[in-house]
């Protein structure tokens, strides 16, 4: 059904996996013709690669102005490629780049928009999507009418691994920009390196009080020879510093044992810890999304379980 334009994102000199997930989503739409778009500077080869690995005919905006991500440059480049391809659906990954630019495209084209989708398919005069709402507590089925811009949640579907015929085709666009890229600041090293810990005990909003972290959470981490972590709301509230934050915008960890206490399991946290070898979740709410990634769950008050566990582990060590 119509042409689907898949917008690639380049990370560390390569097309990122999330872009191939978009290709898989596009290939999965009945009757869709898939086109790609690669934006950057000196990206001709990457565009050819994208064209041969599932994106098919791939438009390329190769310009010094696109060396770094710029909202105005991307917005104009995507709109130009959408016109050139006549795309009915434009797919963009829901990354910091995607959520910055995608809504602008929809407003600029005066078309339908939906974001952070986990499924996409053809609909009646538009497209159908499934997306999470209320921080993962509920799912929503969404339909659009007419031309649509949608972002997909990275990691929601498997990346496309097949091949396709197609070459790169330059598309020209006025790339003048109001916004100016200045620099990327890499995260500073702070001494708290959760990525090296065998055991991480993380506390969430359910801990309820900044003083409970040294009183309740840290002692369990200590007795297990591990490190303390936290979810985003804890850091946002200023209870712990940013280096303790586990999640897509903090540290991505994969310890042997991850204990989540009072963490409901917002997507951005799950992305940061779901690769852990063994996950224990302690939460009062039996419907908390954290239980879907946990190996063992305890539906109880963390203030009952965590201190008792600290004591029992201490006793077991003798």
């Amino acid at each position: 059904m119509g042409t689907v334009l898949v917008v690639a994102e380049i990370q560390n000199g390569a097309i990122r996996e999330a872009s191939y997930e978009l290709v898989a989503a596009a290939q999965g739409i009945d009757g869709a013709e898939v086109n790609g778009l690669v934006i950057g500077s000196g990206v001709g080869e990457l565009a050819s690669e994208f064209a041969s690995k599932g994106a098919g005919k791939t438009y390329v905006v190769d310009d010094a102005a696109a060396e770094n991500y710029n909202v105005d440059v991307w917005s104009k480049a995507i709109k130009a490629a959408a016109e050139a391809s006549g795309a009915e659906l434009i797919l963009i990954a829901n990354t910091p780049t995607g959520w910055d630019v995608a809504p602008r495209i929809a407003a600029g084209l005066d078309c339908a928009f939906t974001s952070d989708c986990i499924k996409a398919g053809a609909g009646d005069g538009g497209y159908n999507f499934v997306r999470r709402v209320f921080n993962g507590k509920l799912d929503a089925e969404v339909s659009t009418s007419g031309r649509t811009v949608a972002t997909m949640q990275p990691g929601a579907i498997a990346p496309f691994e097949g091949s396709s015929d197609g070459g790169a085709e330059a598309v020209s666009a006025d790339l003048s920009a109001g916004a100016k890229f200045v620099e990327i600041k890499v995260a500073e090293s702070t001494g708290v390196d959760l990525t090296k810990a065998d055991v991480i005990v993380s506390g969430g909003r359910g801990v309820g009080d900044p003083e409970k972290f040294p009183e309740i959470i840290q002692p369990l981490a200590d007795v297990l020879g591990g490190a303390m972590g936290a979810s985003r709301p804890v850091v946002d509230a200023g209870w712990l510093d940013h280096p303790y934050q586990v999640g897509s915008s903090g540290q991505v960890v994969a310890p042997k044992l991850y204990i989540a206490a009072g963490i409901s399991g917002a997507i951005q946290h799950l992305v940061g810890m779901k690769a852990s070898n063994f996950i224990v979740a302690i939460n009062k709410d039996p419907d908390a999304p954290i239980f879907e990634v946990a190996d063992i769950g305890v539906v109880a008050d963390l203030f009952d379980i965590v201190p008792a566990l600290t004591e029992a582990v201490g006793a077991a060590k003798g």
Binding site: A112, L138, D139, E141, V142, F291, E292, G297
Partner: peptide, 23 residues
């Protein structure tokens, strides 16, 4: 141009083994 048709509690996937009993 965008409509929510339905919202629902997500189907449970491989959910955790829930421990039961006293503390």
């Amino acid at each position: 141009k965008t409509t929510i048709n339905k919202i629902y509690v997500p189907p449970k996937g491989d959910t955790a083994e829930i421990l039961s009993g006293s503390t």
